[in-house]
Amino acid sequence: MPEMTEILNALVVFTNFVLIPGLAYGSQLALGALGVTLVYGILRFSNFAHGDVMAFGTMVTILVTWWLQSLGVSFGPLPTALLALPLGIAGTVLLCLVTDKFVYRYYRAKKSPPVTLVMASLGVMFVVNGLVRFIIGTDDQRFFDGERFIMKARDFKTLTGLNEGLAIKSSQGITVVIAVILVALLFWFLQKTRAGKSMRAYSDNEDLSLLSGIDPDKVVRITWIIAAALTTIAGVLYGLDKSFKPFTYFQLLLPIFAAAIVGGIGQPIGAIVGGYVIAFSEVLITYPYKKVVTYLVPESWAPEGLLQLLGTEYKFAVSFMILVIVLLVRPTGIFKGKVL
């Protein structure tokens, strides 16, 4: 039987390298997937421009952050970007409403099949993709300021006397806290407010909701505003935690979609669960359990190999394997998403 400290060490290793990063990454994916799912639920198409809209929102926030920093404004221990966030959201809302007016509304009015809208979003994706690079360039941008850590690995070791360290970055803390608040707000909005209820009604049965006097334009507008806000926040949190680069944000589109689909597209709760499923499957399946096991078993049993199911080079593929397996068992995702 391993000693208590051994078990604690194993636990700390696992928390440090799997639990905390997975939680932060999962929250970022979940917020992104919420945007995709809302647009899907109301407007009934998969928005391929999502990743680049995310990049756009983050870009605006970064530009405002730089401006604030040049004025000497700061947010104490928190990153200045959080102060800039409202303006970033405003910019993204504007972008979404403009694209809706000039692109999506036409097809909606024509009652085009969803794939037409998907293709239109592909067009928007290309344009925004180029636009962002024109404005901010292709470079990596770091815009995190303020206190970097809630807990440092080294401090944890001296504090507890354990072999293993535990680190919690402020950006990870902020991500999880904001994600929880946003999700709570969103559910309150959808369940309790008049506008939220009309959105749900519209999503459930468009014709019926129109009969009951719901203004479709208003529902669509609100959807875009909420989706834009969620997207921008997701992008900014991701950028604070890692860094901002247009190419990376374009690439984020795929895991975000995977998250939305795994959970069941059109279902907000599904998007959240999907985000964590994708994030954790990436880490859990490619994590070598050697260290954890070594702490838990007697010394003579210590494994020689890495105990890794798949190499990290397959990380990206893992999320899609999980996706395919989930779809085989539950063809419309974990929470039974919409079927067209």
Binding site: P21, G22, T286, K290
Partner: peptide, 18 residues
């Protein structure tokens, strides 16, 4: 291996650390 342009490297670092 790690892939460029992916942003999140927690799985890779976890494996390296282990």
């Amino acid at each position: 291996a790690h892939e460029d342009g992916k942003g999140d490297y927690s799985a890779e670092v976890g494996a390296l650390a282990a």
